[in-house]
Amino acid sequence: MATNESPVLQIANLEFHYDQPLLSINNFEVSSGECVGVLGPSGCGKTTFMHLIAGLLKPDQGQVLINGTDITQLGEGQIDRIRGQHIGIVFQRLHLVPAMGVIDNLLLAQRLARAPIDREYALGLLAQLGIADLANQKPHQLSQGQAQRAAIARSVAHRPTLLVADEPTSALDDDNAEDAMKMLRELTVNTNAALIVVTHDERVRNRVDRVFSLEGAA
């Protein structure tokens, strides 16, 4: 899919170390409506990469710009705000709030992102993902597939400009993996957001606009 706007995410000269150098990325960009797969084997730093994008980790050097704002220069509170407003995350372990119904999980995401509370929009997302009738169900009442749809709906409930999905297909069979990717693509297209799929699942390679290989980034 062709890009049609300025980059939502720009990474330049990024380096991050734990005990030894882990990540080194010279340049990486994703624009609105674009779907990029970040692929690499286990231990190559995919999760660290995702945390750096989300501002949960600070790089040792380099820049991470979200919609033009370099979050490496911001304080923690400002990063929290940027993350809430601009980034949606689909976790591998879905992490829906177990005490709340599906619709309340979506409304909570809006609340924490300081976005307007829009129940109709949230219900529309659930309908789009085919789980509107489960809006008031608690997460433990959902099947794995239903829970994943709910988690995807939550990740875009606050209208983020960048959606990051962590291993969204790893635990799924081919059909369900296809469905999950289709849902993510449709949602990002509909909301004009950029999508980054961080995974080691090679099946994703053919379902994204382009692939960024982490093992070859350094």
Partner: peptide
């Protein structure tokens, strides 16, 4: 602990 970390990812501050 994981759920709370997820809340941070959703935009919750430490204070929240």
């Amino acid at each position: 602990r994981h759920d709370l970390a997820v809340l941070r990812c959703l935009g919750a501050t430490r204070g929240e």
